[in-house]
Design a protein around this nucleic acid. Structure first.
Lengths: 165, 165
DNA sequence: TCGATATATCTTGATGTCGAGATAAACAGG
DNA sequence: CCTGTTTATCTCGACATCAAGATATATCGA
């Protein structure tokens, strides 16, 4: 099946035959797929009354395990947003009663963000729903192909995740 | 090499051993990689004085071939943004002299957005720079693996690109 | 211990995006 | 032709994000 990137690459080869546009075959697909996924996720979350950014923060805390708390700094590295954004997110989640801010006993500059019971339940429900939707998207591929794909993607992401860029 | 998604998946398996989180191996990597790519692209474009959104619009017009013009609606489907966003983008690009709006001779509701010479040059320069950066990222993979990866991604994106969702 | 530097978080202002609705022209059926 | 519906674009207000800078605390070396 053809996709928009096939058309895009064909157009470049026609307009700029002098350029090697092969990188777009992979990277434009990654960007476009991510954009589609964002939309699909937004739709999947509306039934749980959550925004994607809320889900990202709540699940990061949920994954941390009891007592479900992380510093804003740890949340930054997991969600790839800036510190100003995270401050804002925590404010709003705290306003909705899904998390609370606690002083870090070991560092007076620091803060700990803790999931409330309500926040934890919302995260658990939304995660199950999201996984159902995502499994449906991936049904396109055989299990071995999903593993293959995950492995190739890991090699591209790892350099970003392992240098403190 | 391990990445952040390996840690994320391991955490879920510990916290929610009842759930099948395999979809995240692929889809979380796609989202995170896209986010890293956005940042890398922003950096690559600063040397050409372009924002990523400007690049997206200018190159869509450039790819269209002479006379380098498309309707706002065609630009929407290529860039995956809303109509309000596109109006705004065209306004700003026109203000910088990179595109111009022309009435569509065949449909008086419509508009054609045309690349100026200046806009065309900027698009061409930035594209070459971007491809260099992207080739470096993909050097991680052997040529056959890049092809493999592109093919697997196509199968996931194609359903989105081929239904008018 | 002191001073310089690094770290953690928050504040602020600018900006880009979205969603919903407005406008205007095209089209289809009777 | 009308009339209702669809299509193409634009307007507007709300909102999330970012970048840069501010503040407070921690840490390290002399």
């Amino acid at each position: 099946m053809e996709d928009e990137v096939d058309r895009l690459v064909a157009a470049w080869r026609r307009e700029r035959p002098d350029l090697d546009v092969e990188p777009l075959e992979v990277l434009s697909r990654v960007s476009r797929l991510a954009r589609h996924l964002d939309r699909a996720r937004r739709a999947a979350f509306t039934e749980h009354g959550l925004e994607p950014w809320e889900f990202d923060v709540l699940t990061a805390l949920r994954r941390a395990g009891a007592p479900y708390q992380l510093s804003p700094g740890q949340l930054l590295t997991q969600t790839l947003v800036t510190s100003g954004t995270m401050t804002n997110r925590i404010d709003r989640l705290a306003g909705k009663g899904l998390v609370q801010r606690l002083p870090d006993p070991g560092d007076r500059r620091g803060v700990l963000v803790r999931l409330t019971d309500s926040g934890r339940n919302r995260a658990d429900e939304a995660l199950a729903g999201l996984l159902d939707h995502e499994r449906a998207l991936l049904a396109e591929l055989a299990p071995a192909q999903r593993t293959e794909l995950a492995g190739l993607l890991r090699r591209l992401v790892a350099p970003f995740d392992n240098v403190p860029s």
